[in-house]
Design a binder for these strands. Structure first.
Lengths: 329, 329
DNA sequence: TTGAAAGCGCTAACAC
DNA sequence: GTGTTAGCGCTTTCAA
């Protein structure tokens, strides 16, 4: 493998000049530039990035922590993040935590060991104290999931509002008996439940604790929820869910059980993934501007890396959220 | 940021000893080991991986080239790759080519610049000559997509057989007029078409060239294909498709147009993604053992990196493929 | 069992 | 404009 030294020798110049050519510095004569390029070509030289990184203390890489890639929400989010990153010469290191605290910590280690210049959380597993201790290691942003104690910038949606709007939509369609399916471990989940409760209370309806289903996340979970509901004596007429996948599972199981949607029970999803349009009936859902959220996040990250703007540690960007009305409600 | 030097000083030892402790070398007394650990903790020391990489000439990172993450096939494949990689202390650098030749080349550059130890293609954009010129840069494996000229190891399915079985399934269900939707730019696509043609000919049926739809890839493409078919005078009674997404698009559009599946037209997908079970009717499809393919590929990569086995450059691993019969045929 | 020292490949003062 | 040189932080002979 050729090194910069080899190129310098072959070109009859110094390492510095070669380095200048590589890094497109001004003040190199065309003549010598050509000499360098020729030598590089002949030797099939490519700069060693570990050496560059060590020397410059930059990696031009941003770590993105996601729970898992098989949840389509995250690939779409990554799409937005990547678009902006690539435009600015950065690459993404995508890290699946699989909802594991230890794994999450091991990825935070990337920042400590200088394998990445910055890190973006799209989900959070560990306690806030644990995570905040990494503050000194480099720029960190919370995107999608968040913590109110956070002393990092946050890019998020107003989840209270999202679920409030979704629930109100169900109520306005005439539903009074509404079940809720959502996460409880994240602040995002807690906020969604708040929005749900807010809407229900606003219309003087009752929140039935036995109609609250905690921490479902998959198609399978959705199926199970519907089975549990069908086993009840007093059943809800509508279900609010925390993802299109859960909602899809409910719809699927409804078919198996001969339950009609939305007549017997209405369902609203969350995210507006492609699957929402494919289901029969099509899925009413709460659209998150996923890609935009990714873009905004990466723009913020780049600004932090450049110290362009002084980013306040309580900097919060909130993006709009809306109900997409289809057939399942 | 603390360096190994700082730790050495604080512990009253040499850099070498600290390094030995970091790398769990034998022959360090417990006493000194403790001294080092204490110093590391106090200084919040973490080894700089750029320096380690430069010194050891290893990155413990494998690049995985995928067309895009929003096609669920690839996250599942990555799942398999990652499982094995993580077990052996490797991380994945996931690279989306977005079907772009230039981007693909820029990722091959990762190997040249020593940012990764090995590289896995799951799709191929450039000419074989272009790609094969990277052979000297490090271990490369083709996974999923392949080229018969390949002088790299290949992990793949027998695509000819897959589409042959799928087409035969359609024929055995009584279909004689079968349309084909698939890629033509990749060898994988060409092989699938071969399998299709083989089955059709074997049953003395005709391949109608105007029923061949080239290079569809999305839900939207599927919709378009069905519209084109409905505009024909003489229509096929079944469609073979190259992905569950295309098939889902066809089914979706069929509903819009009041076309019954499988009565008016049968559809078979490819991949067996979660969506196949969610569609109504459920999707008959050709299952690829995606995760296993990922696992096998990474095992092979690790073997290549260790020179454990001498991997023949024409090494080909072929995994089984089967038809999953549901309602759409 | 430990330390001294060389060097991985590169960039950036600084000097000319 | 170009070259000399120091050094980024680490591992690994080699010698003791």
């Amino acid at each position: 493998m050729a090194t910069i030294e080899d190129v310098a020798k072959k070109a009859g110049l110094s390492r510095s000049t070669v380095s200048r050519v590589i890094n497109r510095h001004p003040y190199v004569t065309e003549e010598k530039k050509k000499l360098v390029y020729d030598a590089m070509r002949e030797l099939e030289y490519y700069p060693n990035s570990s050496a560059q990184r060590l020397r410059t203390q930059k990696t031009d890489t941003i770590a993105v922590l996601v729970p898992r890639l098989t949840n389509p929400f995250f690939p779409f989010l990554i799409e937005g993040l990547e678009m902006v990153a690539v435009d600015h010469g950065f690459q993404l290191l995508i890290c699946q935590t699989h909802q594991d605290k230890e794994k999450e910590l091991s990825f935070l280690n990337l920042l400590q060991t200088k394998q990445v210049d910055g890190l973006i959380f799209t989900s959070i597993e560990n306690d806030w104290d644990t995570i905040s201790s990494f503050k000194e290691c480099g720029p960190i942003i919370l995107c999608n999931e968040y913590r109110s104690e956070a002393t990092f910038p946050v890019v998020r949606l107003n989840q209270v509002k999202g679920s409030y709007l979704g629930t109100r939509h169900l109520i306005e369609k005439g539903h009074q008996k509404i079940a809720y399916c959502g996460g409880t471990t994240s602040e995002l989940g807690i906020d969604r439940e708040k929005g749900f409760r807010k809407a229900v209370k606003e219309f003087d309806l009752e929140v039935r604790e036995d109609w609250i289903f905690r921490d479902p996340f998959s198609i399978e979970c959705g199926k199970r929820v519907l089975r549990e509901i069908r086993a009840m004596e007093d059943r809800p007429t509508a279900i609010f869910t925390g993802s299109d996948e859960i909602a899809a599972g409910i719809i699927k199981e409804a078919k198996n059980l001969g339950v009609n949607i939305p007549e017997d029970i209405a369902v609203i999803g969350f995210d507006d993934q492609p699957i929402a349009e494919l289901m029969e009936p099509t899925l009413t859902t709460i659209r998150q501007p996923t890609k935009e959220m990714g873009q905004k996040t990466m723009e913020l990250m780049l600004a932090m890396l450049n110290n362009q703007a002084i980013i306040h540690e309580k900097h919060v960007i909130e993006l709009p959220i809306q109900v997409i009305s289809r057939e399942s409600v």
